[in-house]
């Protein structure tokens, strides 16, 4: 009768000891970061409900697969937080060692550790270059294309393009005096009432001289009315390009001289006609521009001079 009673007593004492030693419940657990890789430190936080008072051990047992670098207990009412930092050096599901907190021993905890190595791969992959930002390749392609375009453009501009562009620019510039003359003729026509007679002819003749200077490559700004007419007559004879321009221009320039230097009155109707004549002469000369340049000769027109 005594032996079975003793056995029951031992059983009860053993159960009480067992229950008193493991009386905790893990109510929450957090892993930071959620995914951990070999070599990365991981913080594990467990909320433990227990009536026991936990005590941080002096010596933390180290696992075989890595190391526990820190262990901390944050006490609370009925629940305390266990926080530890673990650095695993192996992949897989790793069992944490039993943690003895005095009245309570935490065990059966584990940690899943990933590996960047592909399955079956042994060792680490060699280090590769910095990662490119999205669109880097397109940008590089675009840049390369741009550089090539600039190089090609520079080569073109230094080579055949130079002549081509020069000819375009000179063609544009060559027509500037012509356009300017026509614009001035239009302006004079529009504002014929605003100009005094003298001003009208001064402006008209100056524009005509500037235009002729550009067309015959002589300084017609220093040419008198007679010289301009003689120059046109010479051109008529030499290339025939200005046929019919000397006579109308003579009428205009003679009237201009009378208005400018003798203050003679020239009616508005006649002035209007002179504008039309100048316009017609300009159009005629412009249509034979290249021919004119070839046929120009001598430094300036001839004027009969006393004692020349």
């Amino acid at each position: 009768m005594k032996r079975p009673a003793l056995m029951v007593v031992f059983l009860l004492v053993g159960t009480w000891v067992a229950v008193s030693q493991s009386s905790y419940v893990i109510v929450d657990s957090v892993r930071l970061p959620a995914e951990s890789y070999v070599g990365d430190p991981v913080e594990l936080r467990y909320s433990v409900r227990s009536q026991a008072t936990p005590a941080v051990p002096d010596d933390i047992g180290q696992p075989r697969w890595g190391e526990i670098t820190a262990l901390r207990v944050v006490p609370g009412a009925g629940v305390f937080d266990l926080r530890m930092t673990v650095t695993p050096y192996e992949p897989g599901t790793l069992a944490l060692p039993r943690i003895d907190l005095g009245e309570v021993r935490i065990e059966g905890l584990s940690l899943i550790v990933e590996s960047i190595l592909a399955p079956g791969e042994v060792g680490l992959r060699p280090a590769h270059g910095p990662q490119r930002l999205p669109g880097t390749q397109a940008a590089l392609l675009l840049f390369g294309f741009g550089i090539s375009f600039v190089i090609a453009l520079v080569l073109y501009l230094l080579g055949p393009g130079r002549r081509h562009i020069h000819s375009i620019v000179s063609r544009y510039r060559a027509r500037v005096p012509y356009r300017k003359l026509l614009a001035r003729v239009q302006l004079l026509e529009r504002d014929i009432k605003r100009y005094t007679m003298r001003e009208f002819y001064i402006v008209l003749v100056e524009e005509l001289q500037a235009f002729m200077t550009s067309r015959v490559e002589q300084n017609c700004m220093a040419a008198t009315a007679t010289e301009l007419i003689e120059l046109l007559s010479e051109l008529e004879e030499s290339c025939g390009a200005t046929a019919g321009t000397a006579a109308p221009l003579e009428e205009v320039l003679t009237a201009a001289d009378s208005a400018k230097f003798a203050r003679k009155t020239i009616r508005r109707k006649k002035r209007s006609r002179h504008l039309k004549l100048v316009h017609a002469v300009a159009v005629e000369l412009e249509s034979h521009r290249t021919k004119l340049r070839r046929s120009v000769r001598g430094p300036r027109g001839q004027v009969s001079r006393v004692g020349a």
Binding site: T224, A225, T226, E227, D257, F261, V303, R305, V306, A308
Partner: peptide, 10 residues
């Protein structure tokens, strides 16, 4: 006229 000036100038 300017022609007169040019004619005698030389």
């Amino acid at each position: 006229l300017p022609d007169d000036v040019k004619a005698v100038a030389p």
